[in-house]
Design a binder for these strands. Structure first.
Lengths: 364, 364
DNA sequence: TTGTATTGTGAGAACGTTCGCACATCGAGC
DNA sequence: GCTCGATGTGCGAACGTTCTCACAATACAA
């Protein structure tokens, strides 16, 4: 059943039926080179009659272009990545490109494997959320090999490739500042903060204070902590290390536990900033189970906007990432590269918007 | 920059360096046919040294297999499809397969276009959520052309292809029955119910009552309505047409409005069944804005389980679809087909579980 | 008439693999 | 000694396109 591919009608057969050479048939069907009107008509009719479908493998083999974009996401199941992917797919489809998808689960080994597969499949370019901003020789090699790369969400240090990110640091600083402006002095942060090779939280804070750290190649949650620290510094408020909730893993349960811990501190924070959607979910879970009232007993701002935040109590004021636009932008940058642009690496930073929903008030 | 593909080291060069023919090099690197230990070592060393990466296009062209699965989803941005996709991608990755993704947005024209593209890219098989259970000649053609197809979520009438679905009708019937058992007599349903060519709701109910309708090729929301009707019939409860909220579109806002309408009926329902995640979201939005108490003033069961349902008030008892497993199963069926299985079309029906979270009580 | 540009067509070589075949070597069994 | 199977290797033809030529026909200016 699966062996009889009646499907396999080639350009040779079309040419034969139309009484022309395969070269001519190719010119008509592929839309390149000359062909008289009469022959065009004949070839098209033959193709139609035989149900001819070009074999893009063969075309790709000779042209060196597959019109396919490879994507390495962290986990498509997450709203963040699936929205990005949607943006990419939309732009790709409009231009007749295909999208080859892989998940890295934020594991370097898997990213390696994925990039390898995509390259072997001869994708025209790679859109990647790199899971390590340092050890990324595989990306460097791909780039050197002529395969354009567009990074999103984070950037590899010194990789000369395009990137689309958001200004996490600024948005976070502004969110914290708005809490400070409302009168809050004890503001907790709940963030993943998983990987950072260069020491612990204290040394990070020290380096932020000393301005001896470059934020662009940090992971988003660190950038958000960066903004948190900066906001405190510029307002002249002392940092309380106990208020920095480092979850250490991208897990709802871990976030919930850490949130419970923060909310049970003897000197409870009056404000809470969650550094991404999952952290917000964990925090809300903890908040409802403790019966803490938003915003009366706790003011809150979260990063990422998830659908339920708008229609459930408590509604959470949130920093909205333009996720779909991020995917679209990445895809557009990629298409330009594929089209041959050899401009120096571009770094597009998208704007973030704060959606106020009344989860912030003066401290009690 | 993008033109110098230093990447392009072919098997010929490897063979040359190793001092063997391309055929032998191919046998070693491709892992087919004989090769002595000594030559294996030499070839592998040369490949390593040159940084050889096989060109899967060329391999695919000759073998007729690309080790790529094409997926046509409705909208990857939705939690439903992205979870399915995750399941597919996991299984595919484990077997070294790639996943080529497209969105149909449930539009036939787009599905057509997508299938076309995927076939031209010579995918080994198609995993599809067909957007029309009747007009699907493109799928029939693909199948006849030798491209295996696995459907999920819904099935095309008379298409002899594998399928993975859940028993929507049974789960819905049981959910409604449990509301009836709790004492409810006025139970509303909120469902998309967009496309059904053969008439309106009344004629659908009539045909269900007369048992003159085949549920397997209905769209899920119709199957769920089917179960709703059946549960009423078997309990001897008259159906009130006014309680059937047909949203008519897959939209949060439309769902919210329809839910508001239902909740404002003079003789308000005491129970509510929402036929999918988006409907649940719309209903919850309406419920919180009206200040209706769950479960005191309204008992509720929803289809689909979204993360927020577990940690926000009101918690909603829900029918859980094994989404990731659905994707995995679809991928496994596909891989079996690709491996050459020519068994008659298989239809796998996955079990649904009711997760009780206390949104159901006796009517007031 | 000749030259030259424009338009149209076909032959045949790519592209980078795998595959069928021929052939060579080796040991074992008779 | 011979045949036979198992093992190992290379040649050249696929696969289905596009691309580079060569060349023919036509048209128009010199």
């Amino acid at each position: 059943m699966a062996e009889k591919r009646t499907d396999k009608v080639t350009i040779t057969e079309v040419a034969l039926l139309a009484g022309v050479s395969t070269a001519t048939a190719g010119r008509v069907l592929g839309g390149y080179g000359y062909a008289s009107e009469e022959i065009k008509k004949r070839v098209k009719a033959s193709a139609e009659r035989l149900g001819y479908r070009p074999n893009l493998l063969a075309r790709g083999l000779i042209t060196g272009k597959t019109r396919t974009i490879g994507v390495v996401a962290g986990d498509i199941q997450s709203p963040f990545y699936s929205s990005i992917l949607r943006g990419i797919a939309d732009v790709a489809r409009a231009e007749g490109f295909g999208v080859l998808l892989t998940n890295s689960d934020e594991l370097l080994a898997r990213e390696l494997e994925a990039v390898q597969l995509l390259l072997e499949k001869q994708v025209d370019g790679l859109i990647v959320a790199p899971c390590d901003t340092e050890r990324s020789d595989h990306l460097r090699r791909a780039l050197k090999g002529g395969c354009p790369i567009v990074q999103f969400d984070r950037m590899v240090k010194g990789l000369g490739a395009d990137a689309v990110t958001v200004d996490n640091r600024k948005a976070s600083r502004e969110a914290i500042s708005s809490l400070i402006d409302a009168g809050h002095r004890r503001i907790a942060i709940l963030a993943e903060l998983e990987r950072w090779d260069s020491g612990d939280i204290s040394s990070f804070i020290a380096r932020v204070t000393a301005r001896s750290i470059e934020p662009t190649t940090l992971f988003p949650s660190w950038q958000r902590l960066f903004g948190y620290v900066e906001a405190h510094l510029s307002a002249g408020i002392d940092l309380d290390r106990a208020l920095i909730g480092r979850v250490g893993a991208y897990s709802l349960e871990a976030a919930r536990l850490q949130a419970l811990h923060l909310l049970r501190l003897p000197d409870r924070p009056t404000g809470l900033f969650t550094a991404d959607g999952l952290m917000t979910a964990g925090a809300v879970d903890a908040i409802t189970s403790l019966g803490v009232q938003i915003p009366d007993q706790l003011s809150m701002i979260g990063f990422d906007d998830l659908d339920w935040m708008s229609f459930l109590k408590p509604q959470i004021t949130a920093v909205v990432q333009p996720v779909t636009a991020m995917g679209q932008t990445a895809a557009r940058l990629m298409l330009e590269r594929i089209a041959g642009s050899d401009s120096p690496p571009r770094h597009v930073t998208l704007e973030l918007a704060l959606t106020r929903r009344g989860s912030v008030s003066k401290p009690a």
